[in-house]
Design a binder for these strands. Structure first.
Lengths: 193, 193
DNA sequence: TTGAAAGTATACAGATCGGTATGTATACTG
DNA sequence: CAGTATACATACCGATCTGTATACTTTCAA
C-alpha cells in the first residue's frame, strides 16, 4: 500500500501528535518543519513522504482535531436528556477541563484565524469548515430545545465559547471559570417560551 | 533632539501606521521588516533608527493602540449617564462599527496572544497589560452600577467582547451583530438587585 | 555658514525557512 | 529470492528572516 494512504503509520501518527502540540504552544509560523521532524524522532524526508507540504500537514491536523472534537462533543452531551442540559453540559465540560489544564482551553482554530487570515487559503478553509459546523450544531440544539430565536441564542452561546477560549490565552489560568456557565444559563433562560 | 526620542517624526508615525495595518491583516510573523519599511516609503535603516528591533516596534504599536482604545472608550461612554447604559453603549459601538467595517472588529492583542504566547516576552506583556486594564475598567463600571457580583458580570461581558472579535475572524462579516448587545442586556439585567 | 540630525541607498551577515535530491538500510511479502 | 514500502542520513537549493555596516544627501537652526 502506498505510504500516502497509510493512515496507520506510526511515523505519520507521531508527526501529527508532535506537530499538534508544537503548533498549540507556539503558533504555526513559529514552528518549522525541521523541528517537527526532529521532535517526532523522524527525518524531514519522512514528513514529506506523508504530507506533501507543511500546509497539508496542518490541514490534516485540523481535520483530525475536528473529528476528535465531535467525538468529545457527543460523549459530553450523552448524559443529558434535554437539549438545554446538553448545552450546559458542554460549557461545564469546557470549564472543568480548563481548571484542570488551562492550556487545554486554547483553540487551534483561533490560531488559524489569526495566522492564516485569507479565506482562499486551504488552512483557513479547514478551520472555517469546523467552526461553521459547530455553529450549525449549536443552532440545531437550540431548535430542538424549542427556545425562542434559536439562531440568535446559538450565536450568543458560540460567542461565549470562543470568548472563553481567547480569554484563557489573554488573561491566563485564573480567568472566568464558573461565570461562563452562569452566563449560558442566564441566556438560555431568557430564550424560554 | 535625538531621533530615538522624536515622537513627532513623520517617518516614525508612518512606520507605526503601516506596520499596524500590515500586522492587522496578516499577523506578526507573516510580515517582515523589509516590507514594513518598503510600504512606509522608508528605508529599513530608518526603521531601525526609530525602533531598536521588530519587537520594540510591535510594543510601541500596542501601547499606542491602547492609548487610542481608551480615547475611544471614554468618548463612547460619554453620552450615557448610568454605568449600565455606558456598558451597552460600548457594545453598541463595537457592533455598529462592525457592520460598517467588519475588519475593524479584529483585535491586535488577540493576535499577540496567539503569536507571542510566552508571558516572559515583552510583546506578550504589552498585550496583557492592556487587556488586564480593560477587565479592571469593566469591573469598575459594574461596581459603579451597583450590580450584584460585579467581578463575575465584568468577566462575562469581557468574554462576550473577546468572543465577538474572534467570531468576526472565524465566521466573517455576517456574524453576530445585534445578538451580542442583546446578550449583554440580558446578563446585566440578571445582575440587578 | 557650518554642523548635527534625519533620511537614503546599497550591500551584506548569519540564520532559518520550506522543500528537494541522492543514496542506503531494513523489513515485510509475494 | 525478488520486489516493494518505509524510513534512514546527509547534503543541498533558493528564498527570506532580523539586524548591521558604510557612505551619501537633505534640511534646518544656532
Amino acid at each position: 500500500m502506498s505510504v500516502a494512504n497509510d493512515r496507520k503509520s506510526v511515523a505519520r501518527e507521531q508527526l501529527m501528535v508532535t506537530a499538534s502540540q508544537l503548533f498549540f504552544a507556539n503558533g504555526f509560523h513559529a514552528i518549522g518543519v525541521d523541528r517537527i521532524a526532529a521532535e517526532s524522532g523522524v527525518t524531514k524526508m519522512t514528513l514529506y513522504k506523508h504530507f506533501s507540504s507543511k500546509d497539508h500537514l496542518i490541514v490534516a491536523i485540523l481535520e483530525r482535531s475536528s473529528e476528535m472534537y465531535w467525538t468529545w462533543f457527543e460523549k459530553t452531551i450523552q448524559g443529558a436528556a434535554k437539549p438545554e442540559q446538553q448545552m450546559l453540559a458542554l460549557l461545564q465540560a469546557i470549564t472543568s477541563q480548563h481548571s484542570k489544564s488551562p492550556q487545554s482551553s486554547f483553540c487551534l482554530y483561533q490560531a488559524v484565524a489569526v495566522e492564516y487570515p485569507f479565506p482562499d487559503h486551504m488552512v483557513n478553509q479547514a478551520a472555517s469548515r469546523h467552526k461553521q459546523s459547530v455553529v450549525l450544531r449549536l443552532e440545531d440544539m437550540c431548535r430542538q430545545a424549542n427556545l425562542r430565536s434559536p439562531e440568535a441564542l446559538s450565536r450568543q452561546l458560540f460567542v461565549l465559547m470562543e470568548g472563553f477560549c481567547m480569554t484563557a490565552r489573554l488573561i491566563g489560568p485564573d480567568a472566568p471559570p464558573a461565570d461562563i456557565v452562569q452566563a449560558a444559563i442566564t441566556l438560555i433562560e431568557s430564550h424560554r417560551n
